[in-house]
């Protein structure tokens, strides 16, 4: 069953009607409804195109958080072979909100790291909704060190509402773990590339996304704070998330203009969840292209270029 977002309600009605007609026709063979159903399909398509042609920033947040959107695990399963998960931070535990390990992209061995949100109640709880604890960042640091040691490129897939705000996480040094992970991203002498596949939530995302190349899916978002959080602080009203989403400039398109995202990966009409295969293939092609871009750079060049890229960020605003 398709999960519709609130703004997709009119679409749900049309698609529902078409589905109803077809169900009736299946039970009653002399009914000829195909023309009518097709007309509804056309109408639904037009509406979908219309809705997605001008998604507001808040609607983009909703699409980025869509429960059926492909998650890290789906990308790893489809795009990599020989994926061998590696667990633990060697200090406290293993954080299931962060997946990571060795894998092959084509023939090439790489280290892949990403946030996983989970697909149903049980896996969401197990994955802590993609909100990592210090152990998750420390696992990532360890994997990046391994990649650096053995000369393997690092691919990170970002999809997190943010780092987990919990008692234990704070006691075990959430901020230190994030700071060290960002620091490690800046140190590794191997290609480091990131795809923001859904939500890029604040520091929890930066810790993985301080990369040579950052790509964002068309309807993904990346922000210093969630629109709800920003609204409750600056508007003193968390229901003003639409206004906050607008002001924060968190869409892939705005971030591309600001130079934070190097490329925007187009999504199938209606979002990645409507045609998962196509979306996943597009991400795969983008990863390959970004790695190819960095192929001829040695370790020092990669580190220098990464630093330079971040130091020069912010030299242009959106006004121009």
């Amino acid at each position: 069953m398709t999960h519709y977002l609130d703004f997709e309600k009119p679409l749900a009605e049309i698609e529902g009607k078409a589905e109803e007609l077809r169900a009736m026709a299946r039970e009653n063979e002399d009914m000829d409804i195909e023309d009518e159903a097709k007309a509804l399909d056309v109408k639904a398509d037009a509406l979908l195109k219309d809705l997605y042609a001008k998604l507001t920033p808040w609607r983009k947040c909703q699409v980025a958080r869509h429960p059926d959107r492909p998650h890290c695990r789906d990308y790893i399963d489809a795009l990599f072979t020989e994926y061998m998960p590696l667990a633990g931070d060697r200090a406290f535990g293993d954080d299931h909100a962060v997946m990571g390990g060795l894998a092959r992209l084509g023939d090439r061995p790489v280290v892949v790291i990403g946030h996983e949100k989970g697909n149903d109640t049980q896996s969401r709880i197990e994955r802590n909704f993609g909100m990592a604890r210090p152990e998750g960042y420390r696992k990532a640091i360890r994997l990046m060190e391994m990649a650096d040691k053995f000369g393997l490129p690092v691919v990170t897939l970002v999809d997190t509402p943010g780092a987990y705000p919990g008692k234990g996480a704070e006691e075990r040094g959430q901020s230190e773990a994030i700071a060290r992970s960002t620091e490690k991203c800046l140190q590794v002498g191997v290609p480091l590339i990131t795809v923001i596949i859904g939500e890029g939530g604040s520091g929890g995302a930066v810790a993985f996304a301080t990369a040579n190349r950052v790509a964002m899916l068309e309807h993904s978002v990346y922000s210093v704070i969630s629109p709800e959080g920003c609204a409750s602080i600056l508007w003193k009203d968390s229901d003003k998330m639409r206004e906050a989403a607008e002001a924060l400039r968190l869409t892939a398109q705005d971030l591309h203009r600001l130079g934070v995202a190097d490329r925007v990966i187009p999504e199938p009409l209606g979002g990645a969840h409507r045609d998962r295969q196509t979306a996943i293939a597009a991400v795969g092609a983008s990863i390959a292209a970004m790695l190819a871009d960095l192929e001829n750079m040695d370790g020092k060049d990669l580190v220098d270029a990464r630093r330079k890229k971040f130091l020069s960020l912010g030299s242009k605003g959106l006004a121009a």
Binding site: V206, T210, V224, L313
Partner: peptide, 8 residues
Amino acid sequence: GILSLMQM
């Protein structure tokens, strides 16, 4: 916005 986050 994101430019403040990039100060990390």
